[in-house]
Design a protein around this nucleic acid. Structure first.
Lengths: 288, 288
DNA sequence: ACCGCTATTTCCATAGGGTGGAAAATAAGG
DNA sequence: CCTTATTTTCCACCCTATGGAAATAGCGGT
């Protein structure tokens, strides 16, 4: 994915060659490129999606820098296609089914999600904790699917959610799957946001942590993203030995004690290996 | 959801009242309502999402009834926001990350319970019997919500209550939604507690009953849990085709006669299907 | 109960922008 | 090498999205 975004060497395809109109690939905030009404509608759609409690027309219009009437027309148009829904009583706007259905089209391409599903179930059964699958996207990871633990208290990583590379099990696992060079390159672009006292806040420490992860085959997030939350993760490789996804087990500190770390670590590592094999992938051979 | 579509009794909200401009709530195919460019872009987006192998510009334009140049402009605009991605080598279009992220906003708001509610009401009205929603939890099912019948004598399944997998309509419906392998695995762990003369007490009989349920699309509990109580149930699936919940109609033997079984069975099956769709789920494709 | 106040929804004249045909550019096929 | 298929760009026209204003209706204070 995202081949156009970062690959400097793309094979030319048919047709008149595309030309980079705006200097860099910088995403202009709203105007100046693309179809205006579409851009605005997508802004509204994204905004609505980030408001679990529902969003009011006025606020949406204000945040998008639009006149209420314009925002209203676009929302009504989105509603017609079921991309958003309006609450009948309070008039608040929510994300609609069609947006979800369309969005999951993203998953159909990557059969990793489908293939991994039964393995994730098994990992949940064997560990008793929630199991997540995530992919790399720039300086973040994005959760694609989750199998929830049956415990009352359980970790939540809703599909579509994001996690930082430097402060998540899946993030460190994905980094550990890259070559040292690519990993350090990505690390150089990170902003080390602090989430807890234990959050890694400098490149050197992160690189050390990743080296250890690479050595033992799984990455550990020990309350680095949220207090009381521990997480063990391992990378899944494609046929080129590139990490395409990572799988993780996450649960409360109370249940994931020190003594269980090696056990669960080995579990997640071997399951990641199985998924890699099932997908037709292989672990990277060139160890650098 | 869809409160505006079928609920005849909506509370009026603030502002100028909405007026149904086009006679029925009929979704006009493409034009005549809404912002045109947005409609067209959403058509393209939906189309792209249904093409796991990627879609070519020409085909997309043709299917949407657009000039290639127009389709291209809209797609480029969607690409800018990462709602679609273009394969660098072959120029094919795929669903983008942002569509996925935005779409999952749908899950954060409205869960199965909320979405199912109006459908449960309808099922109650059409059947005259109590309607229940339950989820799978280990070797039991848990009732999440109920719409009570208006009859004097009616079945009660209070939210929070539990029912065994082998002796309840919802239990058997949930099992029928699993792959045969997972189902038999769970059945192996059951203790076949006896509730009535008709309670199924051995794995083979349960498997047979579930196979029939899978075949006809709904499960039947014929006084297997309580004497005089009959129950018809069907599974609700998530986006992975996994059964996440089941909906059931339950009432006294006196009212649910043999002749009504197929009728009510079809009712509950089709309503479960509707809820599945409304939740963004899909029936399992790979048959065991 | 009355009266602002605020928020949503509709309407409409305007002009800004989306549209589609055609041309340009390129790869694939014969 | 020439033709065909496909993508991408360009541009003048005219349709359509735009946003201010009006209409409608809760909400809250007095």
């Amino acid at each position: 994915m995202e081949k156009n975004a970062n690959d400097p060497d793309q094979k030319p395809r048919r047709g008149r060659p595309a030309v980079d109109r705006n200097g860099a690939g910088i995403k202009s905030s709203d105007s100046d490129t693309g179809v205006r009404s579409l851009n605005r509608a997508l802004s509204l759609l994204e905004d609505v999606a980030t408001q679990p409690q529902g969003a009011a027309l006025g606020d949406l219009a204000h945040r998008a820098g639009l006149a209420p009437s314009t925002a209203h027309r676009l929302l009504k148009s989105l509603e017609l296609r079921r991309f958003v829904t309006q609450d009948a009583e309070r008039g608040l706007w929510f994300t609609g089914v069609q947006a979800f259905i369309t969005g999951t089209g993203f998953l159909r391409n990557r059969d990793v999600v489908t293939i991994a599903r039964p393995y994730m179930h098994r990992a949940m059964e064997e560990s008793g904790e929630s199991v997540n699958l995530a992919i790399l996207d720039g300086t973040e990871t994005i959760y694609l699917s989750q199998v929830e633990s049956r415990q009352m208290m359980r970790a939540l990583a809703p599909p579509g959610g994001r996690a930082p590379l430097h402060a998540s099990g899946v993030g460190k696992a994905l980094l550990s799957g890259l070559s040292q060079q690519s990993a350090e390159q990505r690390i150089a672009n990170l902003t080390f946001t602090r989430y807890s006292d234990k959050t890694i806040r400098e490149p050197a420490a992160l690189i050390a942590s990743i080296k250890q992860a690479k050595h033992q085959g799984y990455a550990v997030d020990d309350e680095e993203h949220a207090v009381g939350l521990r997480c063990l993760a391992a990378p899944i490789y494609n046929e080129f030995g590139e990490p395409v996804a990572a799988i993780s087990i996450s649960g409360p500190l109370a249940r994931i004690e020190d003594s269980r770390l090696p056990v669960l670590g080995d579990l997640i590592r071997s399951i990641a290996q199985e998924i890699t094999t099932a997908c037709g992938g292989k672990s990277p051979t060139g160890w650098n």
